[in-house]
């Protein structure tokens, strides 16, 4: 396959970037999208240019490293698929493909397609955990968890923290990520004692990081490679109202 790539190049955080066009003549439809970039980079290196920097690691759709907007879609147009698992057979021979980094103020570009997503870590630091020091746990069967709750917690916990939701959101909101953690821990009995404080602190941290507010457009869930449902944002809102209106369990 022959593909034309238009890629965002930016040499460092302070530089002004630009879209640069490249031609790859020997792409193969069995290649993954990142392998296409590998092929391009090999050529660039041998011709004395700097290769395109992009985050990637597991290449099996679970680590959440890869982060690129392909033809305007975070992780590309294929549903429930990260860029690393997107294969070229979904593109046409001769197609021009635009590749950009996640765009959000809270995710500043470090270089080319690499962005700084440490804001997500700090949101978790604000309360995305259960305070249980090692060794302090009761027997695992001490507290049964109804299967529906366990399953809903799991669905939310499947979030890989890639940031596609933010990249897709017209408001640059991290609500889907935030809601996923709130729902995961809020569905489980182990998460109850800290439930109210957690949601208040995490929402404040989310805003302090410069993420925008949610306008319920649903763009996030469409782009989410793990198909985290929009429900988690409703749950986030519900918990926040409960916690701040005094209807909460423990302040």
């Amino acid at each position: 396959m022959r593909l034309t790539l238009k890629i965002w190049r930016q040499s460092d955080a302070d530089a002004t970037g630009t879209m640069v066009g490249y031609q790859v003549d020997d792409a193969d439809e069995d290649m993954s999208f990142l392998e296409l970039l590998d092929v391009l980079n090999e050529k660039l290196i041998l011709s004395g240019d700097e290769p395109v920097a992009f985050d990637h690691d597991c290449r099996e759709g679970i680590c959440g490293s890869c982060s690129m907007v392909i033809n305007g879609h975070p992780h590309g147009p294929q549903k429930a698929t990260t860029a690393c698992q997107l294969h070229l057979r979904h593109f046409r021979d001769g197609e021009t493909i635009t590749i950009e980094p996640w765009r959000a103020a809270a995710f500043p570009v470090i270089k080319d397609l690499v962005v700084d997503r440490s804001a997500f870590d700090r949101i978790i630091q604000a309360g995305g955990y259960v305070s249980v020091p090692t060794g302090a746990a009761p027997d695992a069967h001490a507290t049964p968890v109804p299967k529906v709750h366990a399953d809903r917690a799991f669905t939310a916990a499947a979030c890989i923290g890639c940031g596609a939701c933010v990249a897709a959101c017209p408001n640059g909101s991290g609500s889907l990520f935030l809601g996923a953690k709130i729902t995961h821990l809020g569905e489980l009995p182990q998460g109850q004692p800290e439930r109210d404080g957690r949601v208040v602190r995490m929402v404040e941290q989310h805003d302090a990081e410069g993420f925008g507010g949610c306008t319920n457009t649903g763009a996030c869930t469409v782009s989410c490679p793990k198909e985290i449902p929009l429900d988690v944002i409703s749950q986030l809102n519900h918990d926040y109202i409960a916690a701040t209106s005094g209807r909460g369990r423990i302040a």
Partner: peptide, 15 residues
Amino acid sequence: QCVAQGVPFAREYGG
């Protein structure tokens, strides 16, 4: 330890 942290292991209908 993991259950106490909120790791959502698979469960049966009895919880």
